[in-house]
């Protein structure tokens, strides 16, 4: 597999969005080519105004098998959602 170009994750900031969003991945020999390839593969339909590329192997992901201990404890803690406040009418839509 060493003869293959490394994998890059592509993030694009859309015309109206504020944040870069993950749109997919691609292969490229280096970051500069990854940007060019991302332009050609992911912005053909006028999707973006800014591109980030990140080597896929630089992303550290949470472990799927530890999903339970990782995420389930927060499920039962509804008091962490700020939904228990009385909002004065004058504040309007928040």
């Amino acid at each position: 597999m060493s003869s293959e170009w490394p994998l890059w994750e592509v993030f694009i900031r859309g015309q109206h969005g504020l944040n870069h969003r993950h749109v997919g991945s691609l292969h490229a020999p280096d970051a500069e080519m990854a940007i060019k390839n991302a332009r050609d593969v992911y912005t053909r339909r006028n999707e973006g105004v800014s591109i980030w590329v990140v080597p896929s192997n630089q992303i550290t992901a949470s472990v799927p098998s530890e999903k339970g201990p990782m995420f389930e404890p927060s499920k039962s803690k509804i008091y962490r959602h700020p939904t228990f406040y009385d909002i004065p009418d004058d504040v309007g839509h928040m």
Partner: peptide, 11 residues
């Protein structure tokens, strides 16, 4: 040679 080039050439 690779998918990325294929799309770039088509563009």
């Amino acid at each position: 040679p690779v998918l990325e080039e294929d799309i770039a050439l088509a563009n």
